[in-house]
């Protein structure tokens, strides 16, 4: 029991990069640890970029296949961070999937998604707000959308997001400002129309 706890404590201190080296040697326990650490965060990222949960799961499957295959070539001397590399892998896979399919949800349709109960006042339910924002995100240019996803939903700093997108921090800030402005414009118009209809 005590030994197990000590192993668990030690495992927490192993970096992702060290785990990659172990995975490269065929260590399945290290692979499992990496999956446990990152699956939820990156699945949410893929789902936010492509806005389809089932496809996001397929992407994660492919991404972890690449981890398993690529780990043998992982070079710790290059100083690359696993998280940055993996964000790029998931981002590129998501962009590929997105390119192959048509846009799904229109902005005016998004607010029509009904919540579980009736809406007594002017407020929108979380589900409606989320659907509205998802539709607004779909209307943004890809880089703006990914910058917003990384910084606002994935909780990354501007520097980390800039590293993933391979642009400067200034460029990230600019993408965020323009993205926020555009989303506010899109949501403002649609929300008013929706409220007018529900108040009738």
């Amino acid at each position: 029991m005590l030994k197990g706890l000590m192993n668990l404590k030690r495992a927490e201190h192993i970096s992702d990069e060290q785990l990659m080296i172990r995975i490269g040697d065929g260590d399945r326990t290290a692979y499992k640890m990496l999956v446990d650490r990152h699956l939820r965060i990156f699945l949410a990222f893929a789902a936010r970029v492509i806005q389809d949960r089932a496809e996001a799961e397929d992407i994660m499957q492919e991404a972890f296949i690449r981890v398993w295959k690529y780990a043998a070539n992982w070079n710790p001397e290059r100083g690359a961070r696993f998280v940055t590399w993996f964000y790029r892998v998931v981002m590129n896979l998501s962009i590929d999937v997105k390119r192959k399919r048509k846009p799904t949800i229109e902005l005016d349709e998004a607010f029509e998604i009904k919540a579980n109960g009736p809406e007594p006042d002017e407020s929108l339910s979380d589900k409606q707000m989320a659907a509205g924002l998802a539709a607004a995100l779909e209307h943004l240019p890809q880089r703006q959308k990914i910058a917003i996803t990384l910084c606002y939903f994935q909780g990354l700093g501007n520097r980390e997001a800039a590293e993933i997108l391979e642009i400067t921090t200034g460029a990230i800030e600019s993408l965020l400002v323009r993205g926020r402005k555009r989303m506010a414009e899109l949501l403002k118009g649609q929300r008013k129309e929706f409220l007018k209809e529900t108040m009738k």
Binding site: A44, E57, L187
Partner: peptide
């Protein structure tokens, strides 16, 4: 508010 709602709606366990 919209951003927070979207974040919580899309953060589901695998």
């Amino acid at each position: 508010m919209f951003l927070r709602a979207y974040q919580s709606e899309t953060d589901q366990p695998p």
